[in-house]
Design a protein around this nucleic acid. Structure first.
Lengths: 202, 202
DNA sequence: ACCTGAACACCGTTCAAGT
DNA sequence: ACCTGAACACCGTTCAAGT
């Protein structure tokens, strides 16, 4: 007579994500996850290949949330502001996804692609089709670099971190704008709304 | 009768750094480090408090090398190129230092300060004293974000990564330049040499 | 068909005992 | 004064045995 299932893969991934945030990466043990979903550690291996796979699934679930949250955003300022909000809401998950240290498992490509879809649309319009990929990489690199440093407490030289964020954001976004007076191709230089709080930057 | 010392703290840290690079963070076990320096694992605790401390020492030794390598550089393009070269030479150490994942030990402040000294000098001249800190944070965020993504294999959408590097570097550096026609204070707008390979960017 | 206890190999770390 | 074997607690993972 078959035993009824006492948990699900989704519950396991969700439990791992919660523990990751509250206890850190080291706290995500198979035993801790198992306890949270109400089974014993060996049972987890019915749904998940290994602890590394489980962490990868957490990363991918996080990326899926990012993809949803970023979808439809057309303003580059708002895009990076949203990314930063994700980092502040769940710092450990952000680091796991956006700047995995050495030895941390990495999300599969399809999940990275989904999360960067709206970004590529934005930079295509901002920098022109020819430079869209380069602009997307520049903006992502800056934003994830900044938020990672913020999470890691690397901003210890004083100063106003909020101001540094707006400074970097506004300068980088402006720098990506197609030089319509120089470049040829199809610059699509439609005027777009600026970010909500950019008037405070001096 | 005192037993002669069979190893040193420096040798231990160096061994850990080598294993980190060749075997990854998970390979840096106390036993592996001990074996490499020719003692047993418990002996390491005479010199080092814990594995976490050892990893922190590796991070700080790496930062010290960065500080030396970056010292005296006055051109921002060359500064970030050098940082990227560090990342390519020892990827795992770069990630450990510049984008530690969740749960990785972080270098103490003094070592971070030393490594960012020349950077602050550069951005002061580039962006003006008032925006030096913000400019430094912007440039560091972009550069470490880019190199981390490169190391983590996040650039999978094709395209030319070298071109993306030069694109981002040149745009971001240009964006940090003080708007001398607008800002007041002391802009110190001396002309400076451009990067060696920037002529290849179109 | 899923769940579990027991077991294995392997960690980090401690400590009494050696020299 | 440093080094070591033995031991402890705790991992991830496997598997035969339960239901």
């Amino acid at each position: 007579m078959p035993t009824p299932e006492r948990t699900t893969l989704d519950a396991i991934v969700a439990a791992a994500a919660e523990i990751l945030e509250s206890e850190g990466l080291g706290g995500v043990t198979m035993q801790a996850v198992a306890q949270r979903v109400g089974v014993r550690a060996p049972s987890l291996y019915k749904r998940v290949e290994s602890r590394d796979t489980l962490l990868r699934l957490v990363a991918e679930a996080t990326l899926r949330e990012y993809a949803v949250g970023l979808d439809g955003i057309t303003d580059p300022h708002r895009l990076v502001d949203t990314l930063r909000a994700f980092g502040q809401a769940r710092p450990a998950a952000f680091l796991l996804v956006m700047s995995p240290g050495p030895g941390t498992p990495v999300a599969r490509q399809e999940f990275r692609d989904a999360a960067s879809a709206s970004l590529l649309g934005i930079t295509a319009e901002l920098a022109g089709e020819d430079d869209a990929l380069e602009a997307a990489r520049t903006l992502t690199a800056w934003a994830t670099g900044f938020v990672s440093m913020e999470i890691n407490g690397a901003f210890t030289l004083g100063g106003d971190v909020e101001r540094a964020w707006r400074f970097g954001r506004d300068r980088v976004v402006a720098a990506l704008r197609a030089e319509t007076e120089l470049s040829g191709s199809e610059p699509t230089p439609r005027p777009r709304g600026t970010a909500d709080d950019s008037q405070r930057s001096r």
